[in-house]
């Protein structure tokens, strides 16, 4: 592979956000393969804590693939192989000593399509804390559920029907339920793969508001196809193209003065 070319072409200036926020996730020389397909090529990226990082790029460029390798969700895909190093809090997550289940409890995920469990709203949120033994008794569990739903700004809408099926909510509510479910296990990182792609503008606005609130406590990584969304919510933007991280930097920098022509073309709608 022509590893060297990427390295020399891509010499990122240190984003300003990393000066104020400590690094949470550091990826170095990551390659992801689906069998023969080389989906991520020699990717290096530092993601700040207590901030929102957005991945943008045309469809099929490997945003989801990289996102899923941060909580090792790719392990479930047969034939998928990850090489290189991803550190979370200085810990190499692909180290054999790492328990992948513990890792996923620390790094929550919200999927593109709302996927609540076909159980009650309460059970949806309570499931994670229960399997991790986060609540000592029933009241503690109820408190976690209430807390999470409030933080996901869903509480007011569902407090009277906690025991009705979560699948009976609207799409936007379901997505917020999934966010509540993710934050209920008190993760350090929340990965969101196009969380608003199935939602209308009002629900999208609520989720964006929510993301902005959540970044006070969590490190958030979001994949989005909406340039505006990335500009609105994120602090750091990473632009992917054909499996290559083309450019990453402070969001305002990337959107106002991109270093790379491909980034410029993409954000101005010239291709993608």
């Amino acid at each position: 592979m022509n590893d060297m070319t990427f390295k020399t072409v891509f010499t990122p200036p240190q984003p300003k956000i990393l000066a104020t926020n400590p690094a949470k996730i550091i990826a170095e020389g990551v390659d992801v393969y689906y069998g023969e397909k080389h989906a991520i090529k020699n990717l290096s990226l530092t993601i700040p804590d207590k901030a929102v990082s957005a991945f943008i790029g045309p469809s099929g460029c490997g945003k989801s693939t990289f996102l899923r390798s941060i909580n090792r969700m790719n392990d479930t895909i047969p034939g998928c192989r990850v090489t290189g190093v991803i550190n979370v809090d200085g810990q190499a997550i692909y180290d054999p000593s790492i328990d992948v289940v513990d890792l996923r409890a620390r790094i929550g995920m919200v999927f593109q399509k709302p996927n609540p469990f076909p159980k009650s709203i309460f059970e949806n949120v309570a499931y994670g804390p229960r399997i991790h033994g986060l609540a000592k008794d029933k009241t503690a569990l109820e408190q976690i559920v209430t807390e999470s739903l409030k933080r996901a700004s869903l509480w007011d809408e569902v407090k009277d029907r906690l025991h009705q099926p979560g699948t009976g909510l609207s799409g936007g509510q379901q997505q917020r339920l999934c966010i509540a479910r993710a934050i209920a296990v008190n993760p350090e990182v929340i990965l969101m793969d196009e969380p608003c792609s199935a939602l209308d503008p009002i629900a999208t606005a609520r989720i964006e508001e929510l993301i902005t609130e959540l970044k006070e406590k969590f490190c958030i990584v979001i994949v989005t196809h909406s340039m505006q969304q990335a500009a609105r919510v994120s602090d750091l933007t990473a632009f992917f193209h054909l499996g290559i991280l083309v450019e990453a930097g402070d969001t305002d920098e990337v959107f106002t003065s991109p270093q790379e022509k491909r980034t410029h073309d993409y954000i101005t709608g010239r291709f993608g």
Binding site: N71, G108, Y127
Partner: peptide
Amino acid sequence: PPSIKEAALGVGASHQQAVFH
């Protein structure tokens, strides 16, 4: 639907927990 299993894995359930729960 595999999304159900993914959801369970996403909150830190083991594969077996996801299957059985």
